[in-house]
Amino acid sequence: MIQRLIQILTRADKSKDIAKSRLKLILVQDRLSISEEVMQSLQSEVTKLLSKYFTLKTDEVEMDLEREGNALALVANIPILGMKERKSELNTTEAQKNEESNTKKSSEDQEKEVVEENNSN
C-alpha cells in the first residue's frame, strides 16, 4: 500500500519508459538478425584476421549474437593454440607493444565485443 503510494508519487516506473527501452532492444535484435551465410562469412573473415597473429583451433571457433543485459553482444569463442612469430618488418617498439597485447589476449579464451546500442539507430 505504502509502496504503491510511493510509486504513484515518484512515478519511477512509468510503463512507457519500460516499453521504449524494451522496444529499442528488440529492434536491435530484429534488425541485426543476420542470416546464417552472413554470420559464416563474418566468422571466416575474423578467423582469417586473427590467424595472422595466433594459431587457432579453427574448427572450434564459435560466434553468435547474444543479449547481454541492456545491450547486444557479439560473443566469440576462439580457442588459441599459440602465437605466430612476429613479422620481421615490425620495428622493436611496435613489436613489444604487440607482444604485450598478445599475451593479454592469449590469456583469455573468450573475447567479447559489445555492439553499442546506438547501432540500432
Binding site: K16, K24, L27
Partner: peptide, 18 residues
C-alpha cells in the same frame, strides 16, 4: 494514458521508427 506515462507518445514512436 500518455499523460500518465502509461503509453508511448508520438515522439517515442518516431524516435524508434525514424
Amino acid at each position: 494514458m500518455v499523460a500518465k506515462g502509461d503509453m508511448l507518445d508520438s515522439e517515442d514512436v518516431l524516435d524508434i521508427l525514424s
